[in-house]
Design a protein around this nucleic acid. Sequence first.
DNA 1: GCAAATAGTTGAAACTGTCAATCATTGATA
DNA 2: TATCAATGATTGACAGTTTCAACTATTTGC
Lengths: 154, 154
Amino acid sequence: MSQSGDGELHLLDDVGYLLARSSGITVRRTNEALADLGLRVRQYSVLSAACDTGGISQRALSDFLGLDPSQIVALADDLQERGLVERVPDERDRRTRLITPTEAGRQLYAQARAAAEGSSELSLASLTEDERTVLRDLLRRVVTAAVTPVAAAS
Amino acid sequence: MSQSGDGELHLLDDVGYLLARSSGITVRRTNEALADLGLRVRQYSVLSAACDTGGISQRALSDFLGLDPSQIVALADDLQERGLVERVPDERDRRTRLITPTEAGRQLYAQARAAAEGSSELSLASLTEDERTVLRDLLRRVVTAAVTPVAAAS
DNA sequence: GCAAATAGTTGAAACTGTCAATCATTGATA
DNA sequence: TATCAATGATTGACAGTTTCAACTATTTGC
């Protein structure tokens, strides 16, 4: 019958909550870090996948990033208008359009990556380098377990 | 000059991205798990803090959850209309109103907590029990480093 | 007492998540 | 090969989230 709280905040034991909270903290900080470059984390993630693959279908982006296809359309429109990516038709399947980085896109990405990664480090300043590595490895396993292996242009 | 992608997806090395992605996965799943109870993670977190403290000011909620004060207003309105919390005036400071659980709120919270925690486990099924513990401890340190220690009603 | 700070509220704008419907193209199959 | 189901992209809509600015009531410091 404990009527009044006694200092036990269960949210701080809830991995789901902790994920959401720490994600919020880092996303906020990273958005600030990317603001100078005119990017937000969302568009940065699309640009990153486009640069690292050299061209990826919107469907694959949707799966990889966990976003609705309609969100990809909007993000691609935005990046395309700014000349950072192009939509090149896939000859093997004329339905799909590959989101491909332009030279300007690659250059911006290089800068953005430095900014974004620096910002992450800052958000995790309370962890040691080794602990950050452990965290990264654990999270990567959580994420990759939920994602189909990134469609390597069959 | 690597023009085409060679399988190196830098996002999967970016702790910030991994946090956001895994948070998205767990939040989605937890929202589904809470839907039966008419709750979403956001309102669950408010209810949880209210129950665990026995009564917490909206300002403290705002700090603890990392939400704008105006969001707390909306969430408190919602929970109050459903009879899950009350706003009791603080005698020591008539500006503040303590978000306090009702009996119905406490009962729903008990159910919701079980559902939410079960859902987190499910999202982290690719990790062992020990690894989940490590993850929880690391994330808790990240979060608590960014939050003032939960104002114990000075 | 009075000014500055604080707790809560309202309203607005931009961003995000989710879903249904549509069109073009592909793949399977009769 | 004609047709039908499945898939990739797009549009539009609606609820949820984030972030600000402005405002009122109250408290605190001087």
